[in-house]
Amino acid sequence: MGIYDALLVLSFGGPGGPDDVMPFLENVVRGRGVPRERLLEVAEHYQSFGGVSPINQQNRDLVEALRPVLDVPVYWGNRNWHPFGEDTVRQMRADGVRKAAVFATSAFAGYSSCRQYYEDIRRISIEGGPELIKMRHYGEHPGFVAAMADHTRAALERLGRDDARLVFTAHSIPVSMAETAGPEGGLYEEQLRRSAELVNQALGRTGPWDLVWQSRSGPPQVPWLEPDVCDHLRKIEAPAVVLVPIGFVSDHMEVVYDLDTEARAVAAELGLPLERAATAGTHPRFVGMVRELMAEPEPVPCPLTCCPAPKRRPQA
Rank of each mutant, 00 (worst) to 15 (best):
R115S: 12
L156V: 04
W209C: 08
R79E: 08
Q91N: 13
F144P: 07
W76S: 12
S172P: 02
S172D: 00
M148L: 14
L187Q: 15
G185D: 01
A146C: 04
M135A: 12
P183L: 13
P130D: 04
V74W: 07
D162I: 11
K99L: 09
A178T: 08
P130H: 01
Y188T: 03
G160M: 03
G85R: 04
F103Y: 12
A154G: 05
N78Q: 10
H137G: 13
S112F: 13
G160L: 04
D210Q: 11
Y138K: 10
T88I: 05
S106V: 00
G160H: 01
S125E: 10
H171S: 05
Q191K: 04
L132A: 01
A202K: 07
D150C: 08
G204T: 00
G204R: 00
L203Y: 00
P130W: 02
A104M: 11
A94Q: 13
N200S: 15
T152V: 01
A107I: 08
Y138A: 06
V212R: 00
Q221W: 15
G128L: 10
E189Q: 13
F84C: 10
A147M: 03
H141E: 07
I121T: 02
I133A: 09
G110K: 00
R193N: 05
S217L: 12
V167M: 09
R123I: 09
A154E: 11
A164S: 01
L211M: 10
F108Y: 15
M92Q: 04
G110L: 03
L132R: 05
P174W: 06
A100P: 00
W81K: 01
H82P: 05
H171D: 03
C114K: 13
K99M: 09
A154D: 11
L166E: 02
E119F: 06
H141S: 02
G143M: 05
Q91M: 15
G110E: 01
W213Q: 07
A100I: 03
M135F: 12
D120Y: 12
S125L: 05
P142A: 04
Q221C: 14
F144G: 06
G128T: 02
M135D: 07
A181C: 08
W209A: 13
T206S: 14
S172K: 02
V89M: 06
P183K: 15
R161F: 03
H137M: 11
D150S: 12
G77D: 08
Q116V: 14
Q221F: 15
M135W: 08
Y118S: 13
G139K: 06
W213D: 02
P142I: 06
S106C: 09
T105A: 12
Q214R: 14
G128Q: 00
Y188V: 07
P130L: 03
L198Y: 07
P208T: 08
E190R: 14
L198F: 06
A100V: 03
K134T: 11
A170V: 10
R122A: 14
P183I: 15
G129C: 04
P73I: 04
R98I: 09
D120L: 15
A170T: 12
D95F: 06
L211R: 07
A202R: 12
L203H: 02
R122E: 15
